[in-house]
Design a protein around this nucleic acid. Structure first.
Ligand SMILES: [Mn+2]
Ligand SMILES: [Mn+2]
Ligand SMILES: [Zn+2]
Ligand SMILES: [Zn+2]
Lengths: 140, 140
DNA sequence: TTATAATTTGTAATCATTTCAACTCTATAA
DNA sequence: TTATAGAGTTGAAATGATTACAAATTATAA
């Protein structure tokens, strides 16, 4: 059990190193959290979730780490919610649905033609976001 | 010339009334501005643009009016830019491209399959946003 | 070990947006 | 006409997410 966890953290350590990121304990913990929480957490959510295991943790560190991860292509920065940025561990391209009632952001797996474009009307595309808003199936 | 402007403002007055909005001078001026500026202005941009013609204008009024217009379906609220909300006068569905360098937001006219959906994976869709980010043709 | 660099931390600053109470304007009733 | 009520506007203060910054801590290398 403990060995398994140790192995996992070592795996993350290697992944971070391979991306040119020095694997500090805080970075490993953030990586581990976002990898296992696909519900698009905010900085505050992540902070509350892991500050228990890192008593001295500062919220600024979470901001620093997520900005770094975004620059290195580890997370996507979602701006669907105008109140706060939400983060998404990058796997493969997918769309999102945000509920106007409960605020939950769901993954939507649809194969859209728009996700493949490198250029649109002369502009060079780096990120593509397909965002739906409305009332989720739970709130309906 | 002056008559033409008067006619225009009267037209807007009628449109607002038809949507159940009392046509105050401030509301008419904001409507007139966003109708004629398709570059997705922010609250601050709109405020700076029309405060010259309304010396007593408050920025809070712009916030109030845009929130009202959004509720009444006159404007779309764009959350592409995480720093500030941008507003779009609603015409027909279209995508957007935001430049990471200059911050400009362009209209993208593509006929996508995703814009027609009423439901996605059980969730009721009210708004659909297709947002691209990258480097615009001017900054390339 | 010691020096140097990288990372983390906590506080303060920034900035968009909202809250709120006072003020203004207009329409309508007495 | 005047009084009253409601809607809209205003400006100041509060809120809240994010960033800036400098001090403290930790890791790395000599
Ligand atoms: Mn996702
Ligand atoms: Mn547009
Ligand atoms: Zn919901
Ligand atoms: Zn540009």
């Amino acid at each position: 059990m403990i060995n398994k966890k140790k192995t996992l953290l070592n795996e993350i350590k290697e992944i971070l190193k391979s991306k040119g990121i020095k694997p500090s304990y805080q970075r490993i913990m953030v990586y581990n959290y976002i990898k296992n929480h696909i519900n698009h957490p905010s900085v505050d959510t992540i902070f509350k979730a892991i500050s228990g295991s890192i008593p001295t943790l500062s919220k600024t560190t979470i901001y620093n780490i997520l900005n770094l991860f975004a620059k290195k292509g580890i997370v996507d920065t979602l701006t669907i919610d105008k109140n706060e940025v939400r983060y998404d561990f990058i796997k493969k391209a997918h769309a999102h649905f945000m509920c106007k009632i409960c605020g939950e952001i769901y993954d939507i797996h649809l194969k859209s033609d728009v996700c493949l474009k490198d250029f649109v009307e002369g502009h060079k595309v780096e990120d593509t976001h397909v965002d739906f808003k409305g009332v989720c199936k739970e709130c309906l």
